[in-house]
Design a protein around this nucleic acid. Structure first.
Ligand SMILES: [Mn+2]
Ligand SMILES: [Mn+2]
Ligand SMILES: [Mn+2]
Ligand SMILES: [Mn+2]
Lengths: 257, 257
DNA sequence: GAGAGATATTAGGTTAGCCTACTAATCACT
DNA sequence: AGTGATTAGTAGGCTAACCTAATATCTCTC
């Protein structure tokens, strides 16, 4: 709120006009106090920092967020300068999340994945459409909403793409898996997860029956130069050929022979 | 998107530096093209214009939106000056919605009320909490989301407060009702709707069993100066005394004796 | 250890939405 | 119709997030 009172300071109050810039309320701030943009920076840092939570470069962030590097520098400086900083930023040496930053990032990821699960399970969205909607809504739902959909879904641990949903306490189960695109030795695998970032690829992947938990036989098929991966799902006869690009959107776990 | 290409204009291009301010993409704009703020202005104009769609004053808007009058003037000027204006604004003579503006306003209202219904019916929200959540989410859901929750709910015509939900085509059923606070002659009424704007009042109202469709006996109880309204719900023995303020949050329809 | 190329920062500018303070127009009432 | 109160509009500022262009720093190779 911005003080609707007329603020009738006596004009005769000497020199102390007490201007007090008054600290405007920013126009778009969400329930939790962060803006959508800030949330997205935090998520990107979490993702790019990887399991080891290594320092993330401005360039990597700029690319992931489709934003100019200068904008990233700007934002990080602001985030790092705040009284309770969400990131630790060192000039020319990238950025890492603070405790608070990591917490918030994981909360947004939890929102995102719960929403995806909800859209898929309850609202019957096609798998390739859940991500875009979740990407927006994740910033705007309340804690109550989060809690209610989690309850409705039976407190799921993974989302429809096979990704772990962080707990309320901010723990996310780590998973050991590899890219389908990194297969060299033919073998049998279980689908761990599929990427949600490219709707087109995802639709294609789903059409092949490649879905978390499915069992697949994978072979590198460098036939005629265009290297791809031939995949047979379950015990079906059909064999699909995935391009390298699509194969990079699938994570798998090798079954011990 | 903002043209990631380096835009390498030849420096030797004479005087025509072709600066082209390039029309930046505003940082927060939603799917449909409006910002949250614009949506809220439209909704407020729709509401304040009433059934007759009369001109709305800057002051009324400023109050409803909790914003300074100067901000309203500014916004209306911008909205009216756009190529496909959402409002018709005349200096010193208030504002009305254009066709397009009315359409959008009704769409947002539809979103709002469908979301409220969904939160109440599917996610078991307490009635007094649905409004706040809907007020935020209404701006951020996609058409698909709208369609899916509508389907899930069986295409409801009224929300849990008793308000009409506009159709997809932008039609909203008008309803004939009066404020409980305007009762002078004792009588029997049906609850038409309750206001969702004040959660506290609403909780109180609900606690009395006053809910859309309920039958009530109302009498003005000007006992000891503090004029209120005594209400008996259904055939219960309990009689509740509502303050004028609370009584203004309930709309009723007189039952033909 | 110098320089080239990559990466990051600074400087200056944009839009959207707010604000306050001041000024202008309209209205309402005698 | 005149005038004071109410209402609206203008001018000037602010933050949040972006942008481009120019500059600084780092890193890696020779
Ligand atoms: Mn996703
Ligand atoms: Mn997002
Ligand atoms: Mn509502
Ligand atoms: Mn709203």
């Amino acid at each position: 709120m911005y003080g609707l009172k007329p603020a009738p300071f006596k004009t005769g109050s000497k020199l102390t006009r007490c201007k007090e810039p008054e600290m405007y309320m920013p126009t778009h701030r969400r329930a939790n106090g962060n803006t959508e943009s800030v949330d997205n920076y935090l998520k990107a840092i979490l993702y790019l920092g990887g399991r080891e939570e290594s320092r993330v470069t401005i360039k990597a962030l700029a690319e992931r967020l489709s934003v100019a590097p200068a904008s990233v520098t700007n934002m990080l400086q602001k985030l790092a300068a705040s009284p309770a900083p969400l990131v630790a930023y060192e000039r020319h040496h990238g950025v890492v999340l603070s405790q608070a930053g990591k917490r918030r990032a994981l909360e947004v990821v939890r929102h995102h994945r719960l929403i995806e699960t909800f859209l898929y399970e309850v609202l019957d969205y096609p798998i390739e459409e859940v991500h875009e909607e979740a990407e927006r809504l994740e910033h705007f739902i309340s804690e109550r909403f989060e809690e209610r959909i989690a309850a409705k879904l039976g407190h799921p641990k993974i989302d429809p793409h096979g990704h772990s949903i962080p707990t309320i306490e901010g723990e996310m189960a780590a998973r050991e898996s590899m890219l389908l695109a990194d297969v060299v030795r033919e073998g049998t695998f279980v689908i761990d997860s599929v990427s949600d970032r490219d709707a087109q690829n995802l639709r294609l992947i789903e059409a092949c029956g490649i879905t978390p938990g499915a069992r697949v036989r994978v072979r590198k098929s460098s036939a005629r130069g265009c290297d791809g991966y031939s995949v047979r799902v379950g015990r079906s006869a059909r064999v699909f050929d995935l391009s390298r690009e699509v194969a990079r959107d699938v994570r798998i776990i090798r079954l011990a022979k």
